[in-house]
Amino acid sequence: MKTSAPVPAPSADASGSSLFGALAALPFGALMLFGFVAPLLCVVWFGFMPPKTFALLQAPTLANYVTIFQQTYFKSILWSLGLAGLTVVCLLVICYPLAFALAKIFRGGASFVTYAIATSLFVSENIRLFGWVIGFMKNGVVGGTLATLFDAQVDSLLYNIPVIVLGMVYVYLPFMLFPLALGIKMVPDQVREAAFDLGASRWQVFRKVDLPLSLPGVLIGSLLVFVLSAGAIAEAKILGGQKVVTIAADIESEFTYAQNWPLGSALSTLFIGLTTVVVFVALARFDLEKLLGKKRD
């Protein structure tokens, strides 16, 4: 009989499972330690090395940070953060209606749109940006079309700030769209209907029900886009033609042309620190669980 046999205590079973869990997580942990944590520590440490050196084992110094604050690097940091912020705002406005349609209005069409947009993720960002170059350059697709249709002479539309934002909006659209759509999907239909039934107009339903309840999606999408576009490098270079220098471009040139690795590392550290602060402040200001009424205190 089963009951008479010595039944393993549930705790014993749990500890066995616990061992397997830790074991299964081990390769991943090792990879991250080697390929993520160690390199980052390396960057942070390198930022304290004397300028223009390549060895890691020297006496730490603050020289690089002094240089950063004496020079105009804060400008590129502001550009990066500003462009990233602008990208987030544009994407919120563009994506919310589309995400809403995907989550609540389209039926079969939703997966078509989803696939069409997700597929683009697999085409190298550079190629897609280069498409805009061809579209917008002098005698490009847009200019040429306007010239033949309306006889309007259009110069190059490239190398300005709106085009950089367009590029970032374009590249990071999926990162906003999909979290938003997931967030909106989480709003129960009946709750929206109840608001409607209780006299709310469509706009009121949006403001008082849809928006607050889809806020987790809004937040995740915004943070993702913000972090990614703050670190973006290709948009400003390919579409912006060095019109503005972003922090990522600064960092890259310290590593390549200037061969000043410690300064580049210090800039990276500063940049990582800043984005982390932004992310943590955002996460702390919006207590997700509380927003969703999930918290029981």
Binding site: A14, S17, S18, L19, F20, G21, A22, A24, A25, F28, M32, F36, P39, V43, L223, L224, V227, L228, A230, G231, A232, I233, A248, I251, E252, F255, G264, S265, S268, F271, I272, T275, V279
Partner: peptide, 26 residues
């Protein structure tokens, strides 16, 4: 698997994604 570090693990897994790739490359 249910194990002790699971929740922490779940939180940390996605961290590298939120990281600017150019900086990670450097």
């Amino acid at each position: 698997y249910r194990w002790r570090g699971r929740q922490t693990f779940q939180r940390l897994v996605l961290l590298p994604l939120f990281f600017p790739q150019s900086v990670l490359g450097l």
